[in-house]
């Protein structure tokens, strides 16, 4: 499968990057073709600009070469893997901005004649989210885990209901041990091999 691996963490030495590296190795080892989009390394601009907003209701309103490159990669994708730390119950701004600026009409979805949104990512067959949480699992649930819902529900409405989803979370990261982390990396690798 052609896999797009999207990573959103400002620190290249972070555990999120360790997860991304483990996922990349496991996916490549299983024979998948992986493209990594490290949003911080690419200095991706999160905020949609005024010009982009004004062009939004047109056909494929992309004005930025970086966004165009990412959109081409998305056009060919068969699976999405997202790796990010959860902040304030949701994804970092840079990843939210990636959804807003890359998955525009003509890429992520299309507007029908009644201005209703219709899926545009029907070629995507898998969505995997991998996130780290400072808080324990019960607290994450109490806060509604909004980043997970954005990817597992809002994004999936645009890929179609036959797309399979998987979620891997490392909870209580503020108090976890080196063994917990190693075990989590092993889980990530195993899950990626069986994608």
């Amino acid at each position: 499968m052609r896999v797009v691996l999207v990573v959103a963490h400002p620190d290249p030495d972070s555990f999120s990057h360790a997860i991304a590296a483990a996922a990349l190795a496991a996916l490549s080892g299983a024979g998948h073709e992986v493209t990594v989009l490290d949003l911080y390394e690419e200095e991706f601009r999160p905020a949609m600009s005024l010009d982009e907003r004004l062009a939004y209701h047109g056909d494929r309103p992309i004005l930025d070469p970086t966004v165009e490159r990412h959109a081409r990669i998305v056009d060919d994708a068969e699976a999405f893997v997202f790796v990010y730390p959860t902040w304030w119950s949701t994804m970092p701004a840079i990843l939210k901005g990636w959804l807003e600026r890359v998955l525009v009409p003509g890429v992520g979805f299309v507007f029908d004649e009644h201005q209703r949104v219709r899926p545009g990512l029907t070629h995507v067959r898998r969505i995997v989210g991998i996130s780290t949480y400072g808080a324990p699992r019960w607290y994450v649930h109490a806060m509604h885990d909004n980043g997970r819902r954005t990817l597992m529900r809002a994004l999936r409405l645009n890929t179609g209901f036959s797309t399979r989803r998987a979620w891997l979370g490392l909870y209580g990261m503020d108090n976890c041990t080196a063994e917990d982390r190693a075990e989590f990396l092993a889980r990530v690798e195993q899950r990626m091999r069986s994608l």
Partner: peptide
Amino acid sequence: TWWSGQPAMLTGWLD
């Protein structure tokens, strides 16, 4: 509301 939540600009403001 974009993609069911706050625009990235406001998400980042909270971050």
